[in-house]
């Protein structure tokens, strides 16, 4: 944290809002000084300043209100925690009477509007959806497709590592852009193995690198002289885990479930399976086939999610086909992703 002498808010208050500052000092008001970078510098104006000059609440102990009475909020100081609230104030001081329900309604609406305006963009990790994690595959494609052209295990391994770095960067960007819009400095968010694996699977399904399994096997077989206990080793293991996960992912169970659900979809699924069987027979390895299937599942799932005119059948297929990404999303992206320290 920067010292008070280097604090932008404090310096602006002392130099440009001298009268307000003097007044606050004379009347022994409490000045709440926000740290640098917790707000945009262009928001500093008279309104912003006055919202940070507080006086003791006439009603509640340890509570403060804006000194100029023009801001309708309540600040509670609990040890080192600062809570800005309006609901509490109303709950504690407002008595709802039958004839004043309209007034109560208006006040609550006012609080909701205020809360929505101020907190609607608060970070919401649990609300991260698969769409938010659509990674910029252009960069990863480049790295992964280059891997085939490389000759040595080290060169190939470098491509994997670079891909992981890019995936991490992309996830970071995505979280920062979509879920941490408030300019409040928060604790670092950590991307852990579960999140990384899920993201790499998503990337692979869209990139569909050629002979992925062979490439991984080649790297592992011929990397005996490369150090395993570093970032390269970690990258190699992560991709190996991804490879094994895709290979062992049981899609047949899901398709069986789909066909067993109802006769109405029987024809459709039969048609699909015959087409798929033809298509998959042209693929080079079992892993490629699984990758293709998962990729198709995700595609269908996203199409049905995007479509506003989805039918019941579409919803069913979304439930089943999107199970893979959906489950990752619920369990990995929803909870684990962006674990906050």
């Amino acid at each position: 944290m920067t010292s008070l002498q280097k604090n932008l808010f404090y310096n602006t208050l002392v130099r440009q809002f001298r009268k307000t500052y003097r007044d606050a000092i004379d009347k022994c008001y409490t000045i709440c000084v926000p740290i640098n970078d917790s707000y945009e510098s262009n928001v500093i104006n008279d309104h912003f300043m006055s919202a940070h000059i507080l006086k003791a609440s006439p009603l509640l102990k340890s509570h403060f209100v804006a000194a100029n009475n023009k801001h309708n909020f309540d600040v509670e100081i609990d040890g080192q925690t600062l809570r800005v609230t309006r609901v509490n104030e109303m709950m504690k001081t407002y008595l709802i009477l039958p004839k004043y329900l309209d007034d109560a309604k208006d006040r609550i609406k006012c609080i909701i509007d205020w809360g929505y305006e101020n907190f609607s963009q608060l970070p919401s990790l649990s609300g991260i959806s698969s769409n938010d994690l659509q990674l910029d595959t252009a960069i990863e494609t480049e790295e992964l497709s280059q891997m085939e052209a490389k000759t040595t295990p080290l060169e190939k391994l470098y491509c994997l590592r670079k891909t992981l770095d890019l995936v991490t960067q992309q996830m970071t960007k995505s979280v920062e852009e979509k879920h941490f819009l408030l300019p409040v400095k928060t604790d670092p968010i950590c991307i852990m193995s579960d999140d990384l694996i899920a993201a790499v699977i998503c990337v692979l399904t869209s990139v569909k690198p050629k002979r992925f399994e062979s490439e991984i096997n080649f790297i592992q077989t011929f990397s005996w002289n490369l150090p395993q206990n570093n970032e390269f080793g970690y990258s190699s293991v992560t991709f190996e885990v991804v490879k094994e996960f895709i290979k062992n992912y049981d899609i047949n169970q899901k398709s069986h479930k789909t066909s067993a659900k109802g006769d109405t979809k029987g024809h459709k699924s039969d048609d699909n399976s015959s087409v798929n069987a033809k298509h998959y027979s042209n693929m080079s390895s079992p892993l490629d086939r699984e990758l293709e299937k998962i990729s198709k599942m995700i595609d269908i799932s996203s199409i049905s999610t995007d479509s506003s005119q989805s039918t019941n059948a579409n919803n069913d297929s979304n439930d089943d086909l999107g199970e893979f990404l959906g489950s990752l999303n619920r369990n990995s992206f929803g909870v684990g992703f962006g674990k906050q320290y």
Partner: peptide, 8 residues
């Protein structure tokens, strides 16, 4: 804080 990669 510049890096979020905490798995390794």
């Amino acid at each position: 804080e510049s890096t979020l990669q905490a798995s390794f």
